[in-house]
Every structure is written in structure tokens, then in C-alpha cells.
Design a protein around this nucleic acid. Structure first.
Lengths: 119, 119
DNA sequence: GCTGAATATTCGTTATTACGAATATAACGC
DNA sequence: GCGTTATATTCGTAATAACGAATATTCAGC
């Protein structure tokens, strides 16, 4: 039952969305919060869940926490993430949310090496 | 969130095992019960869960119910099942259970077109 | 139609999980 | 040090899911 934890991480709709977003690039908590339209606490709780299990990594950038997918995922996780990305291509709702997110802010990826500048 | 239901189906360890077994071929309830080492009711409950969501199909053969994976799975499910099979290759526990199952009984696959004969 | 075998369903309980609200922590600029 | 912003954690509760036990259904053979 080696990769059962992967299914457990993704069986919650909010967590699945988070990982889908992170597949597009690193994001800070407040951007995820905006994109998902849920409370800050809920985002943090789910991120903590995913972090404990090794599904996401975090690094601090000033007061911001930048979350991203593991730089060196294990073979099973790597395949699952690739498949999720593939399946996300046909996910209308996700793409609508992603578009909204990109309009809202530039994302945390490009601004990684400077002081965070909120939109 | 198109394929969220797939993760929901597989996030339970028992259900994941069931689908892993079915990837090897059709099985009846009592064989699954033996292979999993759990009560008949639990197997039936989980199978009902999976059937409602289109993850498994069933057909009657005498008093036996033969469960199998969908003959014509959608594109996303097809990919997920292929990945699960791939990941199962390195799953020691699963292979041990599979070996035990094959020693116990011939399986329901070969006996499909006759009266079921319990080992 | 009765019986036994295989499977399904219902029900009450327990365990787990997600949640919102409140509070705590951490870093930054002053 | 103080206030502000961003994030994390704790806690009590509500929703959900899994479970065992008991019961119901379905079919085959007689």
C-alpha cells in the first residue's frame, strides 16, 4: 500500500485544488486563500496536513510563506503529479479559478528573490 | 475537479486494496473477503461504494457476484488505473496478499462461463 | 415452496475529519 | 519595543465515514 498516502492527500477537494494550483508554480498562503475563496485558517490547516505528509514544501520569504511541490519527489509521487496535471487540462472549473488568480496577482514565483509585493 | 471522485474512491486502504486486486482480474465477493481478511459485510459495503461511483462493475454468476473494473473506463480513470497498476509493482504487501489469494483459489476469471466451484 | 449458500442492506455506534472562531507566532518597519 | 501584516495553531463542534451486528435478498437444488 505504498502510495496510499497520495490518495489520502488528494481525496479532499480543497487539498486537491491546492495541489493543482501548485502544479502551476509556487504560491504564498494569501494567494491560495484568494484563489480558493476560503478562510486563511483553512488554507493553513490543509497546507500543514500536506506538509506533514511530504506533499508540499515551504520556505519563508519575509513575512510570506511560499509553498511549492517537492523539488525531488519520489518516483510514485512524481507520476501521480504528472497525471494530475494531465487531468487538470480538461478541468474547466480549475482553469477558471487559475485565470482569476493570475489576474488578481502576479503570483509568488517571479517575485521570489525580492521583497514580496502584494498586488 | 473532474477526477476528484477517483481519489475519494482510493483514499480508503480497503478500497484501494480491492481495486488493486481487481486490476489482476475479476473476483467474487468471497474471494475478496478471504484475500482481505475482513468480514463479508465490509467487503459488500465497500463494493457498493465503488459501484455507485462507477469504479467497479458487477455481474451475477449463479449465487456469486463477480466484480471487475469497468470494461470501458473514461480517459481519466483509465490513466489512473494504469498508474495504480504501475505503482502496485513495488508494493510488497500487496504482492504477498495476491500470492496467498492465488494459492487459495483459482480465482473467478477462468470459471466465468460455468457454475462457480468454490475451492 | 423450502433450504442453504452467497451477497446486500439497514441500523446504531464509534472514530475520524473538516470546520470556524479565537488566539498565538514570526518577521518587518518604525 | 510597538504596531502591522502574514501565517500557524489550538480548541470545541459539526459533519462524515467506517465499522460490527443483525437482517434481508437472491439464486440454485431439491
Amino acid at each position: 500500500m505504498s502510495s496510499a498516502w497520495i490518495y489520502e492527500c488528494l481525496c479532499d477537494e480543497t487539498r486537491l485544488r491546492i495541489v493543482q494550483f501548485l502544479l502551476e508554480g509556487p504560491l504564498c498562503v494569501c494567494h491560495l486563500q484568494e484563489a480558493l475563496g476560503i478562510s486563511q485558517a483553512r488554507v493553513s490547516q490543509h497546507l500543514a496536513y500536506l506538509r506533514k505528509r511530504g506533499m508540499v514544501e515551504s520556505r519563508r520569504r519575509g513575512t510570506w510563506m511560499i509553498y511549492s511541490l517537492p523539488k525531488t519527489p519520489g518516483p510514485d509521487l512524481k507520476k501521480h503529479l504528472a497525471l494530475l496535471k494531465d487531468c487538470s487540462l480538461t478541468d474547466e472549473k480549475f482553469h477558471a479559478a487559475l485565470k482569476k488568480l493570475r489576474l488578481m496577482s502576479a503570483g509568488c514565483g517571479p517575485a521570489e528573490n525580492g521583497t514580496p509585493t502584494k498586488a
